[in-house]
Design a protein around this nucleic acid. Structure first.
Lengths: 234, 234
DNA sequence: TTGTGTGATTTGTGATCACAGTATATCACA
DNA sequence: TGTGATATACTGTGATCACAAATCACACAA
């Protein structure tokens, strides 16, 4: 009591006195690690992931891996083989087109909504990322460019204040990620890294339609470039 | 060998002699049953579902239930409580608006795509469902109306030939379903059951824009009605 | 009456085991 | 050397158990 009262006096209402240690189940960590590896294209498309092998590689039992696999299957980040095994999905031309169209639709909607809801602080953060993005584009660091690109876009989607929409977009990126990262080094050759400046300007002007247009053209442009250099599965 | 040859002679290539028993894991059945119950609003929003209780109710071990819960959490059909339990989600006004907007966007896109890809056979099936729908609308059977309504729409979405889009729409319906079914009996009072005729006509004319417009107006109209009679969680 | 500490119960989590199915490798035989 | 059957290993699946954390209830004291 006395300590609690004392801390109250100090003015820390939500208690930074003691760090709230986040109870994170093992299967969550496995899931995140798998997701990270998937995003970073650490697996080759079509590769089979077996329960016991991945469990042993990560030094855990099969149980957490099973739970993580279930989640990834439900999110379509991996595909379920008829015998129950999972495999990292292949990207066909049809699926690619579909995902691009969905990305353009949903991310366009998110930008439009963000134009109405974004805060000045978020706009400042966006401007800073945009600056780093142009620098990364000139330096030719493909990996950094992709990371900043993602940070830029997801800051906007977060600002749309639509958690459901945000979740759908995240799911799409999870399917897109592994494929995109294969061509990270080629992205810098794209040269069209000015779209984010347009998006930022439109957001600052609160012009939702212009922001959406800039974002969708950025997505379809990037997709067109990607389609030109990538090889697809039948 | 001889028996195999003999069966070949008999002409049963894919063997309708013995039904091919579809190996369906137990956790799949549990998942589907849970999903069905969720759709039929068998649980009250906010209700907690515990592993052992549901396992005992369904007469299975906790393992399949665990897998099913994981899937449902990943699909946002249930929410994950901080202690790891799951609960059927509450529908807030904000979430309702968000889901309606997403449904209008994605289902509109699906109809537009279906207008270009739908086959004559599918159009015939759609016309038949449409007739039954008008009859159900007049008879006042809310449950049947909802079922036919779903069949009508999903036939169209299937015809869009976009499995990824179809999956997203399914996920949205899974979140919508429990809430909608609570007001199944009120739906017949809605009176605006002519939208599907417009959609059908537009599809027959291959007019994607008109079909999309009719579909989105149907969705937002239904949502407006639902919002007027439903009570939301804070 | 209200707050507090303690005990019991219930919770999810993770490991291990048994099992049935399938694919693979191995070996015998022609 | 090629072909066949058999045996071996490996797959996901599901059940059971142990454990720790959280929750709840109840008794006790201020």
């Amino acid at each position: 009591m006395t300590t609690l009262a004392a801390s109250k006096v100090k003015g820390d209402d939500d208690g930074p006195v003691l760090a709230k240690l986040p109870r994170e189940p093992l299967h969550d960590r496995v899931y995140k690690e798998l997701r990270r590896a998937l995003m970073a294209a650490r697996f080759t498309p079509g590769e089979q992931l077996t329960l016991r092998a991945t469990a042993e590689k990560m030094g855990v039992s099969v149980m957490p891996v099973r739970a993580a696999f279930n989640r990834l299957v439900a999110e379509r980040a991996v595909v379920l083989l008829p015998n129950g095994s999972v495999a990292v999905p292949q990207m066909s031309a049809r699926r690619f087109e579909e995902l691009v169209e969905l990305r353009a639709t949903l991310e366009g909607l998110a930008v439009r909504k963000a134009a109405k809801a974004i805060t000045p602080a978020e706009l400042d953060a966006l401007a800073e990322i945009s600056d780093e993005l142009t620098k990364a584009g000139m330096s030719g660091d493909g990996e950094l460019y992709l990371d900043l690109n993602k940070a830029f876009k997801f800051t906007i989607y977060e600002a749309s204040r639509s958690p459901e929409l945000f979740g759908l977009i995240e799911a799409l990126w999870l399917q897109f990620g592994p494929f995109m990262h294969n061509y990270a080094k080629d992205v810098r050759a794209h040269g069209v890294e000015d779209c984010h400046r347009e998006v930022l300007a439109a957001l600052q002007a609160r012009d939702g339609a212009a922001a959406e247009k800039a974002m969708t053209s950025d997505i379809s442009g990037g997709a067109k470039f990607l389609a030109s250099v990538a090889t697809f599965a039948p």
